[in-house]
Design a protein around this nucleic acid. Structure first.
Lengths: 209, 209, 209, 209
DNA sequence: CGTTAATCGAGACGGTACGTCCTGTCTTCGG
DNA sequence: CCGAAGACAGGACGTACCGTCTCGATTAACG
């Protein structure tokens, strides 16, 4: 799973699996480095304040050991983030509305998992790095797909309008939460209840007339 | 207009705008500094590559003259950008829907001005300091207030429901655009038409039944 | 007494004494500036650590007020030092040996006067500045002349050899004390008793055989 | 020979000169830095005008590489000077008087070497820090010890009095020369002949009666 | 079992930029 | 015109990281 962007020419196809000569890379170092990045992020350090040197020190590892695996800070961040991806929340599958709310709530109240604590630290870097951006997209895609399925189920059951643009609905539900997370919460809007208010507000627009 | 985040304790005491003692700050320096930042940005330098030193050199100004006005690079960048973002778009005041779309469009399609090239570079920096965040809020507040006024007008005219939570509506309209700008545009959603689709989609939820 | 090196074109000869137009320079500022320099030196700050800014702040004076009077730090230091010159010690005039010891002791034990505390701070600057050097020479000249007179008295009374090179004797008496002050005291040599040990040691070389 | 005042904790623990971990410091950098300082000094730049930055540029070295070795400018200057002062002069060992004169002369007439141009610039800096002072002491100690040995030899051979305080004699011989070097030469005293005049003058006081 | 070769922690390398401080000049106001 | 206050361009300071490099010491598989 490591090495998504790593420098290693581990492109040894499949067939021959020639073992590289010399001392093999230590998997303990891999772990320690990723773990150090994640620790630093979880402690609330903004992504751009994380220096390779601090990661090396925290991981008890030489700088070269990092640069041997990742060509720069961005690549390291990408792999570190890729390694967390908490599982998407369980949904009950009974009510479309409740399922949507259940899927939205973790975005608004990101208190529980480590992934949740890390995500906000990354917004800063996403714009600098298309790579990181794709990575974050990939991580969040399962959740989005889950929402699409819930919507399709609602359409299938006749609860929702059949002509919905799923992506549009998605962005109308998640966008407000994401923007609030990034630009700071409007004090007039309660984090905890915003997901259900969003769904309820949008309901007349998506429900079958 | 400069100095939104500037360090100056421009605490006009109470009474009469007492003139500060000593030599006043040179407006020429203000201009030269902002202009230098803007030049560097429009030349294609990525925002994070812009150093205070390069700005000082370009502006023909001492570093201290910059630090006297802005406490760090982000503050300077923000003010530079703020100086370039035109005033909120004129609205016709005829149709609530058209006014909303007109106010939203520049967020989705910031294409023309110099600000367009610059703004995206700044999301990166927003999360660092609460101060910077407040600054950005302040800059965008006029546009939000304008939208609130449009909504209030619609309520007054009976076009919209009277029990709307204006902030909630605001976040449902702007959030999707902002999040798309920040996290990258979903290729299934057209930037140009998204504003009107958002308004139209939300219309059944906010229009008087 | 001020203005030994000052910039002022106070070379208005004598005859005409045309009063300068405008507000006359405040003598209070003169005093405050010199006093500030002296304070800073007395507090043990080495001469090279004294900045014009610190002097201005301490004196409650604008920097320009200093530069109007002295062209640079060196000139200011020179005048400050020139203003102190404690009077040379009283000598009894009974014994040549005792008089020499009395004149040497303040060099070795510079505890009393302000001048004594300031002098060591200046060694640093003396080499940079011929001007300051001349100034210090002038200040210490009376003491040296006094010693020469004591020696001449001894020669006249037949107590000392007639063929003495007074300057050589002087440098053999003062040199060791000055060098100890500058390069740090050899712990094997007691500051308090060194003057008399020097004189006694040298006595066979200068006394009439 | 480098690093007399260097920052390195070359605390060889106890036993065996354990090699420090990590890449060893480059001797080429040491040389280049010292050489750059010496070049700048010999080109006539006054000592206080030499900046770490100019040294780094001239040596083709990063500033950190300098600060890793010396904690400040004076320490660097001292080591640079120390590297250039030749070993103490060879003494013939025949006559005590001639040996003393031979050892004193380089203090009075430091004319030939590069050291000659440099040393006077350093008195300025000596008073700043005790550390620097100790360093200078250490550098000059060999010469002083050599003089003590000459004096002991004279005592052993019966040429000199047995009850001499060697430190006192030392300071009486070197002090006048040092003070003349530092405070400027009395025009009545010839630099070239002062050493022998000092020894001859003091001779009756130190020779066995 | 020794050789070979890439790894490891450690830290020095040449650089770039930081944010602070001071210099000597200038520009404002009020006395 | 002088006073204080303080902004101005310039430049050095000492620090922090960057990404590269060089050490001696491991740590495998190959021969």
């Amino acid at each position: 799973m490591w090495g998504v962007t790593a420098t290693t020419p581990d492109a040894a196809p499949v067939d021959q699996e020639r073992k590289a000569p010399g001392r093999p890379r230590s998997p303990r170092a891999d772990e320690a480095i990723i773990e150090a990045v994640l620790d630093l992020l979880t402690e609330g350090n903004p992504a751009e304040s994380i220096s390779i040197e601090s990661v090396a020190a925290r991981a008890g590892v030489g700088k070269a050991t990092i640069y041997r695996r990742w060509s720069n800070k961005e690549a390291l961040l990408v792999d570190a983030v890729a390694s967390v991806k908490g599982e998407p929340p369980r949904i009950k599958g009974e009510s479309v509305r409740d399922d949507l709310v259940a899927l939205l709530r973790p975005i608004a109240v990101p208190a529980h998992s480590r992934a949740a604590k890390i995500m906000p630290c990354l917004w800063s870097e996403i714009h600098r790095s298309p790579e990181l951006h794709r990575c974050v997209q990939k991580i969040s895609e399962p959740r989005r797909e889950l929402m699409r399925e819930v919507l399709r189920r609602g359409i299938g059951s006749g609860e929702l309008r059949a002509d919905l643009d799923l992506d549009l609905v998605l962005v109308m539900l998640m966008g407000p939460l994401i923007s609030q997370t990034m630009t700071g919460w409007n004090p007039n809007l309660d984090r905890a209840t915003l997901p259900e208010r969003l769904v309820d507000m949008l309901w007349p627009a998506i429900a079958r007339p």
